[in-house]
Design a protein around this nucleic acid. Structure first.
Lengths: 138, 138
DNA sequence: CTTGAACCTCTAGTCACTAGAGATTGTAGA
DNA sequence: TCTACAATCTCTAGTGACTAGAGGTTCAAG
Protein backbone atom coordinates (compact mmCIF):
# COMPACT_ATOMS: atom_id res chain seq x y z
CA UNK A 1 0.00 0.00 0.00
CA UNK A 2 1.36 3.40 -0.92
CA UNK A 3 0.36 7.04 -0.77
CA UNK A 4 -1.03 9.25 -3.49
CA UNK A 5 2.36 10.93 -3.80
CA UNK A 6 4.01 7.60 -4.45
CA UNK A 7 1.34 6.70 -7.00
CA UNK A 8 1.92 10.06 -8.61
CA UNK A 9 5.65 9.41 -8.88
CA UNK A 10 5.17 5.96 -10.37
CA UNK A 11 2.58 6.98 -12.95
CA UNK A 12 3.76 10.53 -13.62
CA UNK A 13 0.23 11.76 -13.03
CA UNK A 14 0.07 14.77 -10.75
CA UNK A 15 -1.52 14.39 -7.34
CA UNK A 16 -4.44 16.78 -7.91
CA UNK A 17 -5.11 15.06 -11.21
CA UNK A 18 -5.40 11.71 -9.46
CA UNK A 19 -7.94 13.17 -7.07
CA UNK A 20 -9.74 14.70 -10.02
CA UNK A 21 -9.94 11.31 -11.76
CA UNK A 22 -11.38 9.80 -8.62
CA UNK A 23 -13.96 12.57 -8.44
CA UNK A 24 -14.87 12.00 -12.09
CA UNK A 25 -15.39 8.32 -11.39
CA UNK A 26 -12.46 7.08 -13.49
CA UNK A 27 -10.72 5.72 -10.45
CA UNK A 28 -12.55 3.80 -7.76
CA UNK A 29 -12.56 5.56 -4.41
CA UNK A 30 -9.29 4.69 -2.74
CA UNK A 31 -8.98 3.02 0.61
CA UNK A 32 -8.14 5.40 3.43
CA UNK A 33 -5.89 5.36 6.45
CA UNK A 34 -7.39 6.06 9.87
CA UNK A 35 -6.29 9.65 9.24
CA UNK A 36 -8.23 9.80 5.97
CA UNK A 37 -5.29 9.65 3.56
CA UNK A 38 -5.64 7.63 0.38
CA UNK A 39 -3.75 4.35 0.05
CA UNK A 40 -3.27 2.46 -3.20
CA UNK A 41 -2.17 -0.97 -4.31
CA UNK A 42 -1.21 -2.65 -7.59
CA UNK A 43 -4.78 -2.52 -8.88
CA UNK A 44 -4.95 1.23 -8.44
CA UNK A 45 -1.59 1.61 -10.11
CA UNK A 46 -2.67 -0.42 -13.13
CA UNK A 47 -5.93 1.42 -13.47
CA UNK A 48 -4.21 4.79 -13.36
CA UNK A 49 -1.57 3.65 -15.85
CA UNK A 50 -4.36 2.66 -18.20
CA UNK A 51 -5.99 6.07 -17.84
CA UNK A 52 -2.74 7.93 -18.29
CA UNK A 53 -1.85 5.95 -21.38
CA UNK A 54 -5.27 6.52 -22.91
CA UNK A 55 -5.08 10.25 -22.13
CA UNK A 56 -1.64 10.37 -23.77
CA UNK A 57 -3.27 8.88 -26.82
CA UNK A 58 -5.80 11.69 -26.78
CA UNK A 59 -8.85 9.79 -25.56
CA UNK A 60 -11.32 12.00 -23.73
CA UNK A 61 -12.30 11.32 -20.14
CA UNK A 62 -15.65 10.23 -21.46
CA UNK A 63 -14.13 7.76 -23.91
CA UNK A 64 -11.96 6.38 -21.16
CA UNK A 65 -15.01 5.95 -18.96
CA UNK A 66 -16.57 3.86 -21.70
CA UNK A 67 -13.42 1.81 -22.12
CA UNK A 68 -13.29 1.12 -18.40
CA UNK A 69 -16.89 0.06 -18.36
CA UNK A 70 -16.15 -2.29 -21.24
CA UNK A 71 -13.24 -3.73 -19.31
CA UNK A 72 -15.59 -4.55 -16.49
CA UNK A 73 -18.19 -6.25 -18.67
CA UNK A 74 -15.98 -8.26 -21.00
CA UNK A 75 -18.75 -9.74 -23.15
CA UNK A 76 -18.58 -8.19 -26.61
CA UNK A 77 -16.20 -5.59 -25.23
CA UNK A 78 -13.69 -6.00 -28.00
CA UNK A 79 -15.85 -4.70 -30.81
CA UNK A 80 -17.03 -1.72 -28.82
CA UNK A 81 -13.52 -0.93 -27.66
CA UNK A 82 -12.24 -1.16 -31.20
CA UNK A 83 -14.99 1.22 -32.29
CA UNK A 84 -13.79 3.78 -29.78
CA UNK A 85 -10.19 3.37 -30.87
CA UNK A 86 -11.11 3.64 -34.54
CA UNK A 87 -13.08 6.80 -33.96
CA UNK A 88 -10.18 8.22 -32.00
CA UNK A 89 -7.92 7.37 -34.91
CA UNK A 90 -10.21 9.15 -37.36
CA UNK A 91 -10.11 12.17 -35.07
CA UNK A 92 -6.34 12.19 -35.01
CA UNK A 93 -6.11 11.86 -38.78
CA UNK A 94 -8.48 14.76 -39.23
CA UNK A 95 -6.40 16.89 -36.89
CA UNK A 96 -3.22 16.01 -38.76
CA UNK A 97 -4.82 16.99 -42.04
CA UNK A 98 -5.90 20.37 -40.73
CA UNK A 99 -2.58 21.06 -39.07
CA UNK A 100 -0.68 20.29 -42.26
CA UNK A 101 -2.66 22.91 -44.12
CA UNK A 102 -1.92 25.37 -41.35
CA UNK A 103 1.72 24.48 -41.47
CA UNK A 104 1.96 25.30 -45.16
CA UNK A 105 0.15 28.57 -44.67
CA UNK A 106 2.17 29.62 -41.67
CA UNK A 107 5.47 28.71 -43.24
CA UNK A 108 4.53 30.76 -46.28
CA UNK A 109 3.53 33.68 -44.09
CA UNK A 110 6.62 33.47 -41.91
CA UNK A 111 8.91 33.51 -44.89
CA UNK A 112 7.33 36.71 -46.17
CA UNK A 113 9.64 38.98 -44.20
CA UNK A 114 12.85 37.22 -45.18
CA UNK A 115 15.36 38.45 -47.72
CA UNK A 116 14.45 41.64 -49.44
CA UNK A 117 11.15 41.97 -47.56
CA UNK A 118 7.87 43.18 -48.94
CA UNK A 119 8.38 46.93 -49.01
CA UNK A 120 7.38 48.72 -45.82
CA UNK A 121 4.35 46.68 -44.82
CA UNK A 122 4.57 43.62 -42.65
CA UNK A 123 3.71 40.58 -44.69
CA UNK A 124 2.67 38.57 -41.65
CA UNK A 125 0.11 41.15 -40.61
CA UNK A 126 -1.06 41.66 -44.17
CA UNK A 127 -1.55 37.94 -44.63
CA UNK A 128 -3.57 37.66 -41.48
CA UNK A 129 -5.67 40.65 -42.40
CA UNK A 130 -6.45 39.40 -45.87
CA UNK A 131 -7.54 35.83 -46.33
CA UNK A 132 -7.34 36.32 -50.11
CA UNK A 133 -3.57 36.19 -49.76
CA UNK A 134 -3.77 32.59 -48.62
CA UNK A 135 -2.59 30.09 -51.14
CA UNK A 136 -5.09 27.45 -50.08
CA UNK A 137 -7.98 26.67 -47.83
CA UNK A 138 -7.60 26.15 -44.11
CA UNK B 1 -23.14 50.92 -40.12
CA UNK B 2 -24.47 47.45 -39.41
CA UNK B 3 -25.56 45.31 -36.49
CA UNK B 4 -23.70 42.60 -34.66
CA UNK B 5 -25.83 39.99 -36.44
CA UNK B 6 -24.81 41.37 -39.81
CA UNK B 7 -21.15 41.41 -38.74
CA UNK B 8 -21.56 37.84 -37.58
CA UNK B 9 -22.94 36.78 -40.94
CA UNK B 10 -20.18 38.50 -42.89
CA UNK B 11 -17.33 37.13 -40.79
CA UNK B 12 -18.85 33.78 -39.78
CA UNK B 13 -18.02 34.57 -36.18
CA UNK B 14 -20.90 33.88 -33.83
CA UNK B 15 -22.57 36.79 -32.09
CA UNK B 16 -21.66 35.79 -28.52
CA UNK B 17 -18.09 35.25 -29.66
CA UNK B 18 -17.95 38.79 -31.02
CA UNK B 19 -19.12 40.14 -27.69
CA UNK B 20 -16.57 37.93 -25.99
CA UNK B 21 -13.77 39.34 -28.16
CA UNK B 22 -14.87 42.84 -27.25
CA UNK B 23 -14.83 41.91 -23.59
CA UNK B 24 -11.33 40.46 -23.94
CA UNK B 25 -10.15 43.67 -25.54
CA UNK B 26 -9.48 42.22 -28.99
CA UNK B 27 -12.15 44.38 -30.53
CA UNK B 28 -12.52 48.05 -29.62
CA UNK B 29 -15.79 48.82 -27.89
CA UNK B 30 -18.34 49.26 -30.63
CA UNK B 31 -20.39 52.38 -31.14
CA UNK B 32 -23.91 52.09 -29.83
CA UNK B 33 -27.33 53.16 -31.03
CA UNK B 34 -29.47 55.26 -28.72
CA UNK B 35 -31.01 51.95 -27.67
CA UNK B 36 -27.60 50.56 -26.70
CA UNK B 37 -27.16 48.15 -29.60
CA UNK B 38 -23.73 47.77 -31.16
CA UNK B 39 -23.07 49.21 -34.62
CA UNK B 40 -20.06 48.38 -36.75
CA UNK B 41 -18.37 49.76 -39.86
CA UNK B 42 -15.68 48.61 -42.26
CA UNK B 43 -12.97 49.01 -39.65
CA UNK B 44 -14.73 46.68 -37.25
CA UNK B 45 -15.27 44.19 -40.02
CA UNK B 46 -11.61 44.18 -40.98
CA UNK B 47 -10.46 43.84 -37.43
CA UNK B 48 -12.75 40.90 -36.80
CA UNK B 49 -11.71 39.24 -40.05
CA UNK B 50 -8.12 39.54 -38.93
CA UNK B 51 -8.95 37.95 -35.59
CA UNK B 52 -10.96 35.17 -37.14
CA UNK B 53 -8.26 34.36 -39.64
CA UNK B 54 -5.60 34.29 -36.95
CA UNK B 55 -7.78 32.06 -34.75
CA UNK B 56 -8.27 29.72 -37.69
CA UNK B 57 -4.53 29.51 -37.93
CA UNK B 58 -4.41 28.51 -34.29
CA UNK B 59 -3.06 31.72 -32.78
CA UNK B 60 -4.12 32.18 -29.17
CA UNK B 61 -6.12 35.19 -28.07
CA UNK B 62 -3.00 36.40 -26.33
CA UNK B 63 -0.89 36.09 -29.47
CA UNK B 64 -3.55 37.92 -31.42
CA UNK B 65 -3.54 40.67 -28.83
CA UNK B 66 0.17 41.09 -29.40
CA UNK B 67 -0.26 41.14 -33.16
CA UNK B 68 -2.93 43.80 -32.89
CA UNK B 69 -0.72 45.90 -30.70
CA UNK B 70 2.05 45.56 -33.25
CA UNK B 71 -0.33 46.67 -35.95
CA UNK B 72 -1.00 49.80 -34.00
CA UNK B 73 2.65 50.66 -33.43
CA UNK B 74 4.12 49.89 -36.82
CA UNK B 75 7.74 50.67 -35.95
CA UNK B 76 9.70 47.41 -35.96
CA UNK B 77 6.42 45.52 -35.99
CA UNK B 78 7.46 43.19 -38.78
CA UNK B 79 10.20 41.40 -36.92
CA UNK B 80 8.08 40.94 -33.82
CA UNK B 81 5.11 39.78 -35.86
CA UNK B 82 7.28 37.32 -37.72
CA UNK B 83 8.57 36.00 -34.41
CA UNK B 84 5.03 35.27 -33.32
CA UNK B 85 4.20 33.56 -36.60
CA UNK B 86 7.39 31.50 -36.50
CA UNK B 87 6.69 30.37 -32.96
CA UNK B 88 3.16 29.47 -33.98
CA UNK B 89 4.61 27.47 -36.85
CA UNK B 90 6.95 25.60 -34.51
CA UNK B 91 3.97 24.84 -32.34
CA UNK B 92 2.00 23.44 -35.23
CA UNK B 93 4.94 21.32 -36.38
CA UNK B 94 5.35 19.91 -32.91
CA UNK B 95 1.68 19.01 -32.77
CA UNK B 96 1.86 17.30 -36.14
CA UNK B 97 4.83 15.26 -34.99
CA UNK B 98 3.06 14.09 -31.87
CA UNK B 99 -0.16 13.32 -33.69
CA UNK B 100 1.66 11.24 -36.28
CA UNK B 101 3.10 9.05 -33.55
CA UNK B 102 -0.37 8.70 -32.08
CA UNK B 103 -1.76 7.83 -35.45
CA UNK B 104 0.70 4.97 -35.89
CA UNK B 105 0.00 3.67 -32.44
CA UNK B 106 -3.75 3.93 -32.73
CA UNK B 107 -3.85 2.35 -36.13
CA UNK B 108 -1.77 -0.53 -34.80
CA UNK B 109 -4.06 -0.89 -31.81
CA UNK B 110 -7.24 -0.67 -33.87
CA UNK B 111 -6.07 -3.34 -36.22
CA UNK B 112 -5.46 -5.73 -33.32
CA UNK B 113 -8.98 -7.08 -33.35
CA UNK B 114 -9.22 -7.66 -37.09
CA UNK B 115 -8.93 -11.01 -38.83
CA UNK B 116 -8.25 -13.91 -36.56
CA UNK B 117 -8.23 -11.78 -33.41
CA UNK B 118 -5.95 -12.20 -30.42
CA UNK B 119 -7.57 -15.05 -28.54
CA UNK B 120 -10.20 -14.03 -25.99
CA UNK B 121 -8.66 -10.80 -24.71
CA UNK B 122 -9.34 -7.46 -26.29
CA UNK B 123 -6.20 -6.16 -27.89
CA UNK B 124 -7.32 -2.55 -27.67
CA UNK B 125 -7.80 -2.73 -23.93
CA UNK B 126 -4.62 -4.71 -23.45
CA UNK B 127 -2.63 -2.16 -25.42
CA UNK B 128 -3.99 0.69 -23.38
CA UNK B 129 -3.29 -1.13 -20.15
CA UNK B 130 0.27 -1.96 -21.03
CA UNK B 131 2.48 0.72 -22.45
CA UNK B 132 5.16 -1.90 -23.09
CA UNK B 133 3.06 -3.14 -25.99
CA UNK B 134 3.58 0.14 -27.79
CA UNK B 135 5.88 -0.06 -30.74
CA UNK B 136 7.28 3.42 -30.20
CA UNK B 137 7.28 6.44 -27.97
CA UNK B 138 4.37 8.81 -27.81
C1' DC C 1 -48.98 50.64 -33.81
C1' DT C 2 -48.08 45.95 -33.37
C1' DT C 3 -45.39 41.97 -33.68
C1' DG C 4 -41.51 39.27 -33.34
C1' DA C 5 -36.73 38.73 -34.56
C1' DA C 6 -32.69 40.51 -32.98
C1' DC C 7 -30.49 42.61 -29.52
C1' DC C 8 -28.92 43.57 -24.51
C1' DT C 9 -26.52 41.98 -19.85
C1' DC C 10 -25.52 38.59 -16.70
C1' DT C 11 -24.55 34.12 -14.90
C1' DA C 12 -23.16 29.56 -15.37
C1' DG C 13 -21.46 25.55 -17.93
C1' DT C 14 -17.91 23.16 -20.93
C1' DC C 15 -13.14 20.17 -20.68
C1' DA C 16 -9.33 18.62 -18.24
C1' DC C 17 -7.06 20.06 -15.31
C1' DT C 18 -4.17 23.55 -12.03
C1' DA C 19 -3.51 26.67 -8.09
C1' DG C 20 -4.20 28.18 -3.61
C1' DA C 21 -6.02 28.50 1.23
C1' DG C 22 -6.27 26.59 5.47
C1' DA C 23 -6.36 22.53 8.24
C1' DT C 24 -4.74 17.77 9.39
C1' DT C 25 -1.65 13.64 9.24
C1' DG C 26 2.46 10.85 8.68
C1' DT C 27 7.19 10.05 9.51
C1' DA C 28 12.19 10.84 10.22
C1' DG C 29 15.53 12.56 13.24
C1' DA C 30 16.95 14.33 18.13
C1' DT D 1 8.69 10.61 23.00
C1' DC D 2 8.74 14.83 21.02
C1' DT D 3 9.17 17.94 17.29
C1' DA D 4 9.45 19.61 12.75
C1' DC D 5 7.91 19.72 8.46
C1' DA D 6 6.67 17.43 4.23
C1' DA D 7 2.74 15.42 2.54
C1' DT D 8 -1.87 14.97 2.70
C1' DC D 9 -6.80 16.47 3.14
C1' DT D 10 -11.10 19.32 1.37
C1' DC D 11 -12.84 23.16 -0.79
C1' DT D 12 -13.15 26.92 -3.94
C1' DA D 13 -11.76 29.33 -7.86
C1' DG D 14 -9.10 30.01 -12.15
C1' DT D 15 -7.51 28.59 -16.96
C1' DG D 16 -8.83 29.25 -22.44
C1' DA D 17 -12.08 30.11 -25.69
C1' DC D 18 -15.99 29.98 -26.00
C1' DT D 19 -21.38 28.35 -25.57
C1' DA D 20 -26.03 28.26 -23.50
C1' DG D 21 -29.76 30.18 -21.20
C1' DA D 22 -32.66 33.50 -18.58
C1' DG D 23 -35.02 37.53 -18.56
C1' DG D 24 -35.57 41.92 -20.40
C1' DT D 25 -35.26 45.71 -24.31
C1' DT D 26 -35.01 47.59 -29.08
C1' DC D 27 -35.45 47.74 -33.94
C1' DA D 28 -37.79 47.50 -38.27
C1' DA D 29 -41.28 45.59 -41.36
C1' DG D 30 -46.01 45.48 -42.29
Amino acid sequence: MFSIGELSKRTKVKVPTIRYYEQMGLLAEAERTSGNQRRYDKTGLERLSFIRHARDLGFSIEAISSLIELQEHPDRSCEAATDIAVSQLADVREKIKRLKLLEKELSRISKGCDGQGVSEDCYVLASLADHELCSREH
